[in-house]
Simulated assay, not measured.
Amino acid sequence: MKNLKLVLFTFLFAAISTAQTKGTLTGIITDKDANNDPLAFATVLVKETKTSISSDENGKYSIELNPGNYTIEFSFVGYESFEKTITIKKGEVTTIDGYMGSGNYTLKDVVAATNRKKITESEIIVEVKKSQTSG
């Protein structure tokens, strides 16, 4: 019984001390072009750790990080991504909300080229006969 109490106490102490060494980054990502509606499944990338998470269906996200300075990149397909530098402190919750707008992407030049090939009726008849004999 003593050993069980010691194991439980050690486990509880380790869990509490580990939880206190990290900080939490949290927030909501919204679409600024659509009345700040939540942007579901947007990507939040922590560049220094190369860790990324997605916001939930309500645009909310949360990630635990070790204390320090980080560059956070918010992105979503078809939207302009943006970065923010943050500082995470031990045991604290840092809230960063992201307001993303659709990107104005334009093409510089589009060139369409084609070659005209004139096919005579006799060439078409030959091609039809070839396909009928081979098929």
Rank of each mutant, 00 (worst) to 15 (best):
F41S: 08
I125Q: 08
Y99K: 09
V128H: 06
V77Y: 12
I53A: 04
F74S: 03
E80K: 14
E127L: 09
S52I: 06
Y61Q: 01
F76Q: 00
A40M: 07
I16K: 05
D31N: 14
L12M: 10
T133F: 05
S131C: 05
Y79C: 03
G103K: 14
E123L: 10
Q132C: 01
K129V: 10
D97E: 08
T85N: 14
T30E: 05
P38C: 10
K117W: 07
K130H: 06
E92G: 02
N3C: 11
T18L: 14
A34F: 15
P38W: 04
S122W: 06
F76V: 01
V111G: 01
K2E: 14
N69W: 01
T26K: 09
S17W: 06
A42G: 11
I63D: 02
F76W: 01
K118H: 15
T26A: 05
N36R: 12
T71H: 07
V7K: 12
E121N: 13
K2W: 11
S102W: 10
A34T: 13
I63W: 00
Q132M: 11
K130P: 02
G135R: 07
V110Q: 05
D56V: 09
F11R: 06
T114G: 09
A112C: 04
G135F: 07
T71G: 07
E127K: 08
T26H: 02
G78W: 06
M100F: 07
E64Q: 11
I124K: 10
S52K: 07
I63G: 00
F9L: 14
F76M: 01
A15C: 08
N115Q: 12
K84S: 15
E57R: 15
I119K: 10
N104I: 14
S62F: 01
K129C: 03
S81H: 04
P67A: 08
L45C: 04
T95V: 15
F82S: 13
G27Y: 01
K129I: 13
K108V: 14
T18M: 12
I119G: 10
I86K: 04
L65W: 00
D37E: 13
K84C: 09
I53D: 03
E123I: 03
T49V: 05
L8W: 06
G68I: 05
Q132R: 07
Q20S: 13
D33Y: 13
K89R: 12
K90C: 09
G23D: 02
T10N: 08
Y79E: 04
I28Q: 05
K2Q: 11
M100S: 03
A42Q: 04
T87Y: 04
E92I: 05
I29H: 00
I63Q: 01
I88D: 01
L65R: 02
S102E: 15
Y99C: 02
E83F: 08
F76G: 00
D37R: 12
L12N: 07
